[in-house]
């Protein structure tokens, strides 16, 4: 009997390898050794600007993780950004409205915001009524948000997470009230909508780099660099795979395919 589940051998060793590379880079960062810089991400640079603009206009900031549940990695990318957004809002004394479609995500967001206000020295400014669970239904959530946009007119709309068909409805509604919009998702079907309707769009992996980018923490930056190294490895594998597939037409005889599916 084999140790691994069929087709999972490469998956397991990939996890081990990326874990080792990340660990090495974290150790290097902790030892104060040089870590390559990551490129500028306009959407993340604009976070502070958008909150500053909302403060000047005396209007709130709205942030949502979309429809992703607690187990979606995109939701964790939102968690990593939310603390920073909440701390900036506390610092500038700007109202933050945070809406949710998932009650588990809602509980986590409530805790993140409360703690961020506390860390910013403004626990009094935290308003539990501004962290809202709206509806578990996709379009119930959307219509509640459209109503909120029309009534409270946030000056900044930050949407980072997993979105479905409601992405364009929300982004267009945000554009119509003149909000500066920063959106980010890994959903390739919704990305074009965000690009068309928002001021800044974080494309795919960029949402995961947020915490490292914002904090400039070398340990976190190390993990992003590790990810980039693996991206190069994956693209090299694609090139090698393309060459082998063109030489050996029969997939059963293709060594790369058999190794990956092992």
């Amino acid at each position: 009997m084999t140790i691994w589940t069929k087709g999972m051998v490469v998956d397991f060793w990939f996890i081990v390898a990326i874990g080792i590379v990340t660990y090495v880079l974290i150790t290097r960062a902790r030892a104060g050794m040089k870590i390559p810089e990551i490129r500028k991400i306009a959407g993340l640079e604009a976070l502070e600007e958008s909150i500053g603009r909302a403060t000047e206009m005396g209007r709130p900031v709205h942030a949502t993780p979309g429809l992703g549940g607690i187990s979606a990695p995109e939701t964790f990318a939102f968690f990593n950004t939310l603390g920073y957004i909440a701390q900036l809002c506390a610092k500038y004394d700007c109202r933050l409205i945070q809406t949710n479609r998932n009650y588990l995500v809602h509980s986590v967001n409530e805790e993140i915001i409360k703690q961020a206000y506390l860390e910013a020295g403004r626990p009094d400014a935290y308003n539990p009524d501004d962290v809202r669970y709206l509806s578990g239904f996709q379009f119930g959530y959307t219509s509640a948000l459209l109503g909120m946009f029309a009534r409270e007119k946030p000056a900044a709309n930050i949407m980072i997470g997993y979105f479905y068909a409601e992405s364009l409805i929300l982004a267009e509604a945000g554009a119509q009230i003149g909000a500066i919009q920063i959106a980010g998702t890994t959903s390739t079907a919704q990305l074009p909508f965000f690009v068309a309707a928002c001021d800044y769009t974080l494309i795919g992996e960029e949402i995961y780099a947020a915490s490292a980018y914002i904090s400039k923490n070398p340990v976190l930056l190390g993990t992003v660099v590790g990810e980039d190294w693996f991206k190069i490895l994956v693209f090299l594998t694609i090139i090698v795979g393309t060459v082998i597939t063109n030489v050996i037409a029969d997939p059963k005889k293709n060594p790369l395919t058999s190794w990956i599916l092992k």
Binding site: T22, E111, E119, I207, S215
Partner: peptide
């Protein structure tokens, strides 16, 4: 890859935003 590295950061305890506060993004 980004989601995988994020998961790894959470598993290694480097990313703690979901436990409240600003986590790694102070």
């Amino acid at each position: 890859l980004g989601s995988f590295v994020t998961v790894l950061r959470i598993l290694l305890g480097i990313e703690r935003a979901h436990l409240g506060g600003v986590g790694g993004a102070g």
